[in-house]
């Protein structure tokens, strides 16, 4: 859970930084997308680095989900009889809800996200269009519901990470009495930065900064 999560967080940081290139204009953004496909050439064939990244990410996602399912099954076995009374004060159950059900929401979003911006199947500009045009078309005001879904999903990712990042440090035994508080603050900050970075693109498209 922690190791695969760490891989995915590192990817998200890179993904967000890449997204921000859209503010440098269509040329820079499309060139960056092209570079992702050609990086390493001619030492390695085109798309080698990208394909490797895709394989690592797929494996990480599968193992992450597998760990989550295993944990949930163990939890179910450890408490065969549920409580009749709903807890009042102590139990926000925030972490459980945001990690398990939030994780499910994120998985569904990733499917949509790939169909929209990677394969272009559900993108109005289509898969053959330049990456920049796909982004602009996807977040067009007429598709406000798509943008809304994107907003909800990104905020869900942020909440997932707010618990997930420090929890990974704890699982890997990297927290102590004196560092845990700071790690929690840092993980909340990184989550907030990622959310703001990812949301800045659709906002820019909507207010016409990126068109």
């Amino acid at each position: 859970m922690a190791v695969t999560g760490a891989i995915l967080v590192l990817y998200l940081v890179a993904h967000m930084l890449g997204n921000l290139k859209i503010f440098l204009g269509a040329g820079a953004f499309n060139a960056y997308a092209e570079w992702l496909r050609t990086v390493g050439e001619p030492a390695v064939p085109g798309r080698t680095v990208l394909t490797l990244t895709e394989i690592v990410l797929t494996v990480a996602v599968v193992l992450h989900i597998w760990s989550a399912v295993a944990l949930a099954r163990r939890a179910g076995k450890a408490r065969p009889v549920k409580y009749a009374a709903r807890p009042k004060a102590h139990a926000s159950r925030y972490a459980t809800h945001i990690m398990r059900y939030g994780g499910l929401t994120i998985a569904l979003f990733v499917v949509w996200h790939l169909l929209d911006l990677t394969f272009g199947v559900v993108n109005p500009a289509g898969g053959a269009a330049a990456p920049y045009d796909r982004v602009v078309e996807s977040f067009d005001l007429s598709r406000w519901y798509v943008t809304l879904f994107y907003f909800v999903a990104v905020i869900m990712v942020g909440l997932h990470l707010r618990h997930g990042i420090w929890s990974a440090f704890q699982t890997l035994g990297m927290t102590t009495h004196r560092t845990r508080g700071r790690i929690r603050v840092a993980s909340a900050l990184l989550s907030a930065v990622l959310v703001l970075g990812f949301l800045s693109v659709p906002v820019a498209v909507m207010i016409g900064v990126v068109k």
Partner: peptide, 15 residues
């Protein structure tokens, strides 16, 4: 013993 896995929810500390 069949206890579940920890996901650092912090419920334990609260009680």
């Amino acid at each position: 013993e069949g206890f579940g896995g920890c996901t650092n929810t912090g419920e334990c500390v609260a009680v």
